[in-house]
Structure formats: structure tokens, C-alpha cells
């Protein structure tokens, strides 16, 4: 009984302290940034409009592994694998329906080649929804984006023209099966 009353008093005071603390905010400035009059600073890792980047050698980074598409929670990425003359896998088409995209960045996390990247450009309003559908030519940029210097084909074991077996990072010369050495 006594304990209950004491608890009640203490609880009442904590509530009053809460009120006091909130009231203190009367004197603290607002955190709101007045967009669009004030443009906020967005860090490079901000998650907005998606791009496809290129290898340092200027070829498409995307190997159309489909991991972005499967990671996408709103299923707004669709692509089809094809293969170039020199053995690279690349997407025959790559489509992102930005009217569905929630900018969650799961595709970027899933991408094993750093091909798909999110940029800080979030201002992509359109009056016609069909303009929100980006094909590969709209997505592809000319540079490496956030990860300069990385090339998936240098770590992959698959041969492409200009990179034979054994020439990737951490690879030994191809085995000579006919060797008689032990």
C-alpha cells in the first residue's frame, strides 16, 4: 500500500520531468531544413536514383547475375543475360521501374560487381509515370561511380578476351594436365 503510493508519487514526478524536458525544447532551434529554398548536403552514399557503372576499362560492369532483381523488395528491376564475343556476361536489357522503386539500396548491397549504385540525386519527379521507367541506356554512366579501380573480371575465374586463365588476381598459371611431375 505504502509502496504503491510512493510509486505513484515517483511516477507522477517522472511524468512531470518529461513535461519539463519537452518544454525546454521551446528554446532549442528547429532541425528542419527548408528544402527546396535550402538545399541539404547529401553524402555520396545517400540512396536515391540508381545508376549502372562501368569497369575501369570502360566496359559494362553488370554481369547480369540477377542478384539485384531478386534482392529488390518491390520487384522493380528486370534484366536478361547475354554474352559478348569476348566472353563477358552483360545485360541484353536492364530496366528499372522507378515509379515502384523505394530507394532501399538492397540492389546495391546485393551487387557483386559494384555495377549498380545509388546516387544522391533524388529529384526525379515526372508528370507521366512511363518516364519513370529507365532502360539500360538511361542507367549506364561512363565512370566507375563510388568504387574506382574495381573490376569484377579481375577477380573472377572466367576467361574474357584480354584476361586468360591464371591472369586474374590470386590465380596460378593454368595447370598442364599432361605434366609428369609429381
Amino acid at each position: 500500500m505504502i509502496k504503491g503510493i510512493l510509486d505513484l508519487i515517483r511516477n507522477t514526478f517522472t511524468q512531470l520531468i518529461t513535461l519539463k524536458m519537452v518544454l525546454h525544447h521551446t528554446f532549442s532551434p528547429p532541425d528542419t531544413v527548408q528544402y527546396p529554398e535550402q538545399m541539404p548536403y547529401l553524402p555520396p552514399r545517400y540512396r536515391a536514383r540508381i545508376i549502372l557503372t562501368r569497369d575501369p576499362d570502360g566496359e559494362e560492369r553488370c554481369v547480369s547475375c540477377n542478384l539485384c532483381a531478386v534482392a529488390c523488395p518491390v520487384d522493380c528491376i528486370v534484366l536478361q543475360k547475354t554474352e559478348s564475343e569476348d566472353g563477358r556476361w552483360y545485360p541484353e536489357f536492364f530496366r528499372i521501374n522507378f515509379s515502384r522503386c523505394v530507394m532501399c539500396g538492397m540492389c546495391e548491397e546485393a551487387c557483386p560487381t559494384y555495377a549498380i549504385q545509388l546516387t544522391p540525386d533524388f529529384e526525379m519527379c515526372e508528370y507521366d509515370r512511363s518516364n519513370m521507367v529507365y532502360e539500360k541506356e538511361h542507367l549506364l554512366i561512363d565512370g566507375c561511380g563510388k568504387y574506382p579501380g574495381y573490376s569484377f573480371w579481375n577477380v573472377s575465374g572466367k576467361t574474357i578476351s584480354g584476361k586468360d586463365k591464371g591472369e586474374a588476381e590470386n590465380e596460378a598459371e593454368p595447370v598442364d594436365v599432361r605434366s609428369l611431375m609429381p
Binding site: 525544447h25 521551446t26 528542419t32
Partner: peptide, 8 residues
């Protein structure tokens, strides 16, 4: 509300 919650 906004004032007390540091908004506008």
C-alpha cells in the same frame, strides 16, 4: 507540437 519537437 513541431516547436517542442524541434521541427517547423
Amino acid at each position: 507540437l513541431a516547436w517542442w519537437q524541434d521541427r517547423l
